[in-house]
Computed example of a mutant assay.
Amino acid sequence: MFLAWNEIQKNKLRFTLIIGVLMLVAYLVFFLSGLANGLASLNREAVDKWDASAIVLTEESDKSLVASTMTIDEAEAMEADKTAVLGQINAIARTDDQKANVSIFGIREDEFIMPEVSEGEAFSADNEVIASDTIKEDGFALGDELELSSTDEKLTIVGFTEDARFNAAPVLYGDLGTFQRVKFGEAAEANEDQINGVVVRTDDISAVTDNSELEAIESETFIENLPGYTAQSLTLNFMIYFLFAISSVIVAIFLYVLTVQKISMFGVMKAQGIPSGYLARSVVAQTFILAAIGVAIGLILTLVTGAFLPAAVPVAFAIPTMLIYGVILVAVAIIGAVFSVLTIVKIDPLKAIGG
């Protein structure tokens, strides 16, 4: 460690460049992880808010909530610790000055998926809704009357709730009657028993329903089947894993070049009786120091950047995940140093000093 740190101090510019490259790689990895986490949250916040075991949909819906249709009677026949009926429809909500894509949830106020109100009050009358607080970013406020693209019905925002987006759209929570009027219009009364799914909390998902036309889907499986969710997550995660490999290659190249430049010095040291193991440990220690400094700076820069990003940028930094990625970056950097270690072990002292 002494030899490693002493050399870093003697060649500050050279090793600062290596730290800079590692810092940029770490910065990109951390930012991509925040972007992946933020984009995932855009799709799943409302589902996570349920804290449910599963959701029951029709078999023919292909795990799509909006494509599923069942009756309240079918919902009441289900066996679970807790059940909550759910209707869902997508729409465009607008006022005179604002417009936003929204997802409308029809729920019952006394069931467990009823959201906690963070501002305003819960819905208590027809066409009143609780909105995700993210809709404020589009300029909406308490008391706004919303016109919808799919109906003549108008909704009024009476409250806000935190963390409630579904498929990247802010959620509007209203009662079942409101949902059915928005979806069916004048035929709402004839379809008052129609819903899209049933959210359940239970220890035995397989026992929820014996109806062959219905399917109980675990919450995580349901999320993974949301349009674009899996493809988006795999793409960003692949980029992160690819950066790990790039980091290893970059460190390997830099350290190998430095090692080749110092072959004669290593030869003299080995001729003086310094074992290859000591020199190898010095290179590994040097790599650890450089990688740790670069990763730490990258982490700090990422958090600073995150503090100044506008709310419209979907990033959410998970510190535990970032720390794990930081450890992996340091580890792959050390793995990249193996080539230099092998070179040191193979150095013949006599040849290295020109004997």
Rank of each mutant, 00 (worst) to 15 (best):
G267C: 04
K82A: 12
I246Y: 05
K10T: 08
Q180R: 13
E220P: 12
A312D: 15
A188S: 06
A337W: 03
E137N: 15
A291R: 01
V341E: 09
D81V: 02
S124V: 09
I293N: 09
A26V: 06
L32A: 06
N196F: 00
P115V: 03
A231Q: 15
A312E: 15
A352H: 01
L301Y: 01
S132N: 01
W5P: 11
A285M: 15
S276G: 15
L309S: 11
I328T: 02
A67Q: 13
L13K: 14
E192Q: 14
I263G: 07
S233I: 14
Y173F: 07
L148H: 10
L350V: 15
A216C: 00
T343H: 05
T305N: 11
P320K: 07
E116H: 12
I293Y: 01
E111K: 04
R108P: 07
L155C: 10
S64K: 12
P275V: 03
V249C: 08
E224L: 12
S212Y: 09
L329D: 04
V251F: 02
W50D: 04
V158S: 00
S118H: 09
E162G: 12
I223K: 13
K346S: 06
A46S: 10
L86F: 10
F317N: 07
A75E: 08
I334P: 10
T202Y: 07
E147F: 06
G106P: 05
S340R: 04
L22A: 03
D163M: 06
V102Y: 01
D163F: 04
P320L: 01
A331S: 08
V117C: 02
L39N: 01
L172V: 05
M78Q: 04
I130V: 15
G87V: 08
T16P: 00
L17R: 08
I135E: 05
F339E: 02
T202D: 02
I253P: 04
K63T: 13
D133Y: 10
S212G: 12
F105S: 04
A296Q: 08
V85A: 06
F179Q: 00
E128Y: 01
T58I: 05
Q180F: 05
K12N: 11
G174K: 05
R94C: 03
I263N: 06
D210S: 09
G87F: 07
N211P: 03
I130E: 00
A77D: 15
D97T: 15
Q9F: 14
I250N: 08
I130Q: 10
F238I: 13
A307R: 12
E74S: 13
V304G: 12
D48G: 13
G38D: 00
L32P: 00
D175W: 06
I240P: 00
V85L: 12
L226K: 05
T16F: 12
L172C: 01
L148S: 00
F166M: 05
L290W: 08
D204K: 14
I107A: 05
D152P: 11
V268P: 09
S340I: 04
E111H: 02
A316E: 15
L236D: 02
G354F: 02
